[in-house]
């Protein structure tokens, strides 16, 4: 771990910048990408290809009136977004970009990320409850239920990777793919389950039930405005970043690239590609029904993930170490 002092401050500043930039550029990128998928152009008017839309949105978000519904539980209403935002931001601390280049190179980095994400459903349920609004209540409960049920297959799928690497340190996991094939080849089932679970975890289409605008207006953040809405949005994009980063590190080799020198650029490219493909899904798919979603998690993904663990374990016994 890096020591206290300037180093820490610098890393913290970097962390903060990463967080803010992801959200801002994420919003812009998403609008552009989805626009082009839809044969539109996305933001166009302010600045070069609408680039100034970013600062404009930020200023708007900060300067907007912060409306608190009269009947809302004031205390909870103010605090609840923190339960979503803080864990999302904190989980970024576990990111590693190269061996030795990390915010905090935790020995149990993966565990830390999952632990942080477990706090988020509480935040969603609190948000849903505190507003005294039926849409937010339904949205918040849906979000909490969804997050809880998809954490399990996600963990189980990651377990296969952890078993074969023998470490929860993200650096180790990525390094383990430096010589052998990536985990997407070694554990394709795990990859599919993990990606689906991540999609659900970050509330993206086709699993965006909590925000289901066609039935729940805007889901759990219906009542939020101004910077509180901004915080929730920020947390969502951070979760998107973290989810894509996890898939890239766990299954797509992290900073490794076959035949080419390892570099954080690969990691960055993979993450952006994964983020863009979630936008692609969003542009194409409708959303599932709530009960189908739950069924999918409990009746399909979890049993398959368990079977995957057994499969990985038995293959580890049979096949040579280099492969598993």
């Amino acid at each position: 771990m890096s020591g206290l002092g300037w180093n820490t401050v610098l890393w913290l500043a970097g962390l903060f910048a990463l967080m803010a930039l992801t959200a801002l550029i994420g919003v812009y990128w998403e609008r552009k990408v989805i626009g082009h998928f839809q044969a539109r152009r996305g933001p166009l008017h302010h600045g070069w290809h609408g680039l100034l839309q970013l600062p404009a949105d930020m200023v708007k978000m900060i300067s907007k009136e912060d409306v608190v519904p009269t009947k809302a539980d004031r205390m909870l209403f103010q605090v609840a977004p923190m339960f979503v935002a803080v864990p999302a931001f904190t989980s970024l601390a576990a990111m590693t970009f190269m061996p030795g280049v990390a915010f905090v190179d935790m020995r149990h980095g993966l565990f830390f990320v999952f632990a942080m994400q477990t706090v988020m459903p509480v935040g969603f349920a609190l948000i849903g409850w505190s507003c005294d609004n039926k849409y937010t209540l339904l949205g918040g409960l849906r979000a909490a239920a969804q997050l809880i049920s998809y954490e399990i297959p996600m963990l189980l799928a990651a377990m296969g990777v952890v078993m074969s690497v023998g470490s929860m340190r993200l650096t180790d996991i990525a390094q383990a793919q430096a010589s052998g094939p990536w985990f997407i080849v070694r554990q394709p089932i795990g990859f599919v389950i993990f990606s689906l679970a991540v999609l659900a975890e970050i509330n993206r289409t086709p699993f965006d039930m909590p925000e289901a605008e066609s039935e729940l207006v805007a889901g759990y953040h219906t009542e939020y405005s101004g910077m509180k809405f901004g915080l929730v949005q920020l947390a969502e994009y951070t979760a998107l970043l973290m989810g894509s980063y996890l898939i890239a590190t766990l299954f797509l080799g992290g900073w490794n690239m076959p035949l080419l020198p390892a570099s954080p650029v690969w990691l960055f490219l993979k993450t952006v590609l994964l983020m863009t493909s979630t936008m692609w899904f969003r542009a194409t798919f409708p959303r599932l029904r709530v009960d189908t979603l739950m069924e999918m998690s409990w009746k399909i993904l979890i049993p398959v993930a368990l079977a995957n663990i057994m499969l990985v374990a038995s293959l580890m016994l049979v096949l040579p170490k280099r492969w598993f």
């Binding site: 839809q38 044969a39 969003r282 542009a283 194409t284 409708p286 959303r287």
Partner: peptide, 17 residues
């Protein structure tokens, strides 16, 4: 109907063409 089932409006825009 495509908006109702939760697409982001992509089929909507193709159809509106």
């Amino acid at each position: 109907v495509t908006m109702d089932i939760g697409t982001m409006g992509t089929p909507f825009i193709y159809a509106f063409k």
